[in-house]
């Protein structure tokens, strides 16, 4: 690089790569070097949608968790929530990247995350609400992580080797997420009268939102039958066992079992909260399409 007098800042820009300015942000393709082959006989459209479902669950839940950073009760919890959000964001990137590969229509993880309208998102509605308080967040994280762990554990035997690998990695991460949420539920439930009362209210409220988790969407049914995906109805016994184990330890009363709902989020029908999340999540990408820095 030419040395010119007066250009004291040249040394700082003597680098074609922006990685050191924005550590981690230049990482463009989480699946680079992973075989992009799609197993023969796969229904590509259904497999794409299935990857979007699991990726959107993680992306939207991650965004809600990120909102808690700077608002958590203790700095250790700021770190925990940020780490859990980062794990889920990583899973979302891998899954959206896989969806784009399988779809093979010129989209990528960014266009899928930033370019879709609310009605095109396939996440369960449980990922969406803004939490009324920390007890609600812990109840929701417990429900989400318990369900997702049971799902990913089974998905690690998927006939799609990429989904299987993403799931096997995710199992290790979500195990920590579930333990973290469960310990907080016990700490608050088995705590003071006030914390007990608020944790009970949160578990009761969140329990009503869990019916959708076990509804079987036609895409999930087809993917389970083909050996690529998991039938969510099969996850219910494991979920119920963990849920009651935590409730007992937390001295909380078991809320009524919700009826298995219809999978509204899986069909793109969402709560109003999702629009608010996407407004924020997509604002930069929409105001500066294709922008890089």
């Amino acid at each position: 690089m030419p040395e010119e007098p007066g250009s004291a800042y040249d040394a700082l820009t003597d680098h074609e790569d922006d990685a050191r300015w924005a550590y981690g942000t230049g990482f463009t393709d989480p699946l680079a070097g992973v075989s992009s082959a799609v197993p023969g006989g796969a229904d590509r459209e259904a497999l794409t949608t299935y990857c979007l479902m699991l990726g959107d669950d993680a992306l939207i839940m991650s965004h809600r968790l990120q909102e808690w950073v700077t608002r958590a009760p203790e700095i250790e919890d700021e770190l925990a929530l940020a780490n859990i959000a980062l794990d889920l964001l990583g899973q979302a990137r891998l899954l959206l990247g896989r969806a784009a590969e399988v779809e093979d229509a010129g989209r990528d993880e960014d266009s899928l995350a930033y370019g879709r309208e609310a009605g095109e998102f396939r996440n369960v509605c449980l990922a969406e609400p803004a939490d009324a308080d920390f007890a609600h967040l812990m109840a929701r994280l417990l429900a989400f992580a318990t369900w997702r762990l049971a799902l990913l554990d089974r998905l690690s035997a998927s006939a799609d080797p990429v989904l299987a690998a993403i799931a096997a990695k995710g199992v290790k991460e979500v195990t920590y997420h579930r333990d973290y949420a469960a310990r907080w539920v016990v700490r608050l439930g088995d705590g003071t009268d006030l914390s007990h009362q608020r944790m009970q209210a949160a578990m009761t409220a969140v329990a009503t939102q869990t019916g959708e988790l076990f509804a079987v969407h036609p895409v999930e049914q087809a993917m389970a039958a083909a050996g690529f995906g998991v039938d969510p109805a099969q996850l219910r016994p494991e979920f119920a066992t963990v849920w009651s184990q935590v409730l007992d330890a937390a001295t909380l009363e078991a809320p009524a079992d919700p009826a298995v709902g219809v999978g509204e989020g899986r069909d793109g029908r969402h709560t109003a909260a999702l629009s608010g999340i996407l407004d924020e999540l997509q604002s930069v990408a929409r105001s500066t399409p294709g922008g890089v820095w």
Binding site: G24, P30, L86, Q91, K169, G170
Partner: peptide
Amino acid sequence: PTYSGCPALRTIRD
């Protein structure tokens, strides 16, 4: 990668 969200992977590649 160590974790799915590991932000260091790009730097490691470079």
